[in-house]
Design a protein around this nucleic acid. Structure first.
Length: 564
RNA sequence: UGCCCGGUGGUGUAACGGUAGCACGAAUGACUCUGGAUCAUUUAGUCAAGGUUCGAAUCCUUGCCGGGCAACCA
């Protein structure tokens, strides 16, 4: 990996990078920097993981170090190769490549040997009590725990029992290996924590070789040591584990990686817990892990997010030890910001209202020049067909408009983008009083969109030619949750009650300009005045499906909202 | 009630004993063939009280508020 300047003048270093920079300056670790990104393969990665990915891989890249992708696969019952594969895909998609790909399970032999080391040192023992008893004996925040009657077993007996645990002599739960620390320690984690448990379960990598598996606390720091990780960066909930992390390093006399904790990402109007996301997928409330409403990386990808936007977002939210709640608009803004510069503009009418240009000759059509991206001259222009019958957005017409509405209304003139000024002469209604068609006239002198006499219009509308348009399905997405902060829902209540019932709005019969006919799944564009859209993975030729990635900022919507 | 960690405008962050700054949001205006983008202006903050100091967001004490820890999960 090449070295990037970690501090490009304007952006100050976050506290983790400050520590890394200081360690480097002090000559620690022989000038070496090594981090790791350690997901458990029991679910798909989400935007919160992207924060960790950008931190760990980013530090390695910026400081000329290395970063390992390590699967924390110490619990075979929840883990699966499906997740292992998706995680690799997602890390690469975010834009990083690992120096090594490892698994905690690669180290099971060494971990086992270290467990025996602890036993031999009189620092671990086999406990044969059941879960409930061990839990009761742990004590509480205010009362010390009670020592297990098995705590004084001899080294020989412990070794014998532990070896028999390994060889499969006992059923699940019969015994457990515990560290012998202090049942009265004010740190609950130090009250003889469990190091190994019996699980007769098939492991996605080691198969049936093992029936005992190490706990997180007896694996993570040791794997760090084996890999010579210098800075082991994790989230705040592992803060209280650090004393145990350091205890293992000291007693085992292994490479002293240092653990640093930062606050995980919380976002408004969504859910960031793997358990809850899995629940949504399992019970069919989402179409899958990649449902575009999900905050998963594959969901965001399908929704139309770019890796550039994800990385920019991770850069703006910073890294601290304060557990806050970041506004979803920050993420959305990162996407707009990226796509504004890059996405080609197209015209699409989502809720079509037919417009007949009464003074335009029947059977005639024309081609007009449209700019592909006003932010990027090199994107060039394209032709869009014009004819007597068009569609405009229903929302762009009001029969009896309020003062602030400057779009089309009876007797009013507006511009059709890149085409002509048109004036509404009549709104045709059905028996029920619904407006079914607009009859308008156009001014041939305004071809291209400018009036030679210099007269102005207050609005420019997007439109498509009825006969040339292609039909499409367009899926509009809104927040996954109805409330900002899901953590405020009490445990006694089902959090799923707070899902947004309007998170998906599927529109059919949408009309797209013909240049969109061959758009490939994943390709992105801006539908002018509406938002950024991408072609969905389910889209097929002849039956296109578009996802709305994010809307454009909408001043009119804001005015309407304020007006009640 | 034990231990650990936090608390800077509405939100996210910077300032590392020396002028509280930035981004997003909000508001206003300019410009505009996207009510987009862009540009300009404005808005609003150090949890509280003591202490140390010439000087405190920063150091100390106490309090208040928030989060985490009592899985054979990670």
């Amino acid at each position: 990996m090449s070295t990037e300047a970690p501090n490009t003048s304007e952006r100050p270093l976050d506290f983790v990078r400050q520590i890394v920079a200081a360690d480097l300056a002090a000559g620690k670790n022989g000038g070496r920097v090594k981090t790791r990104f350690p997901p458990e393969p029991n679910g798909y990665l989400h935007i919160g993981h992207a924060k960790s990915i950008c931190l760990n891989f980013g530090i390695a890249r910026e400081f000329g170090g290395q970063c390992t992708l390590r699967f924390d696969d110490t619990n075979p019952v929840t883990e699966d190769t499906e997740y292992v594969e998706s995680i690799q895909e997602d890390v690469r998609w975010v834009g990083f490549e690992w120096n090594d790909l490892r698994y905690a399970s690669d180290d099971f032999d060494q971990l086992y040997a270290w467990a025996e080391t602890l036993i031999n040192k009189g620092l671990a023992y086999v406990d044969s009590q059941d879960v409930e008893t061990i839990r009761r004996q742990r004590g509480t925040a205010t009362e010390p725990g009670v020592e297990s009657p098995n705590r004084s077993r001899s080294v020989a007996e412990n070794l014998d029992l532990f070896r028999r645990m390994k060889s499969g002599e006992f059923p699940d739960g019969a015994h457990v290996l515990r560290a012998k620390i202090d049942m009265a320690d004010p740190h609950l984690i130090l009250r003889d924590p469990v190091l190994y448990r019996i699980k007769h379960a098939h492991h996605h990598r080691t198969g049936d070789k093992w029936c005992i598996y190490p706990m997180y606390d007896f694996a993570h720091g040791q794997c760090d040591a084996i890999e010579n990780v210098t800075h082991s960066i994790c989230t705040l909930e592992f803060e209280t584990h650090r004393v145990l992390y350091d205890w293992c390093i000291e007693k085992l006399e292994i490479y002293p990686s240092r653990q640093y904790e930062f606050a995980r990402l919380n976002l408004t109007y969504t859910v960031m817990s793997k358990r809850k996301l899995l629940e949504l997928v399992k019970n069919g409330m989402m179409s899958g892990w990649d449902d575009p409403r999900m905050p998963t990386l594959c969901g965001l990808r399908r929704r139309g997010y770019t890796p550039e936007a994800i990385r920019a977002f991770c850069g703006t939210i910073g890294v601290t030890r304060y557990n806050g709640l970041t506004d979803m608009v920050v993420l959305e803004n990162a996407l707009r910001d990226d796509l504004n510069k890059r996405a080609p503009r197209r015209m699409a009418v989502l809720r079509p209202l037919k417009v007949v240009i009464t003074n335009y000759p029947e059977g005639q059509s024309d081609e007009l020049d449209a700019i592909n991206n006003p932010e990027d001259a090199s994107a060039g222009t394209r032709k869009v067909p014009f004819s007597r019958e068009l569609y405009i957005e229903r929302d762009d017409f009001m029969e009896d408009p309020p003062k602030q509405f400057f779009r089309l209304a009876p007797g009013r003139e507006v511009r059709l983008r890149y085409a002509y000024f048109i004036k509404c002469e009549e709104a045709v209604k059905d028996e029920a009083g619904n407006i079914v068609e607009l009859r308008c006239t156009y001014d041939p002198a305004t071809r291209g969109g400018d009036a030679p006499d210099g007269r102005k219009v207050k609005a420019t509308l997007h439109w498509v030619s009825a006969n040339h348009a292609i039909d499409a399905e367009v899926r509009l997405y809104d927040h996954l949750c109805r409330i900002e902060d899901l953590s405020e829902v009490p445990e006694t209540e089902d959090w799923k009650n707070y899902l947004n019932p309007q998170s998906l709005d599927t529109l059919t019969g949408c009309k797209l300009e013909p240049s969109l006919k061959d758009a490939e799944p994943g390709s992105k564009c801006q539908f002018e005045r509406l938002g950024y859209f991408c072609v969905d993975t389910e889209s097929v030729p002849g039956k296109p499906v578009f996802n709305r990635s994010v809307t454009l900022k909408d001043t009119w919507a804001k005015i309407q909202k304020k007006g009640g």
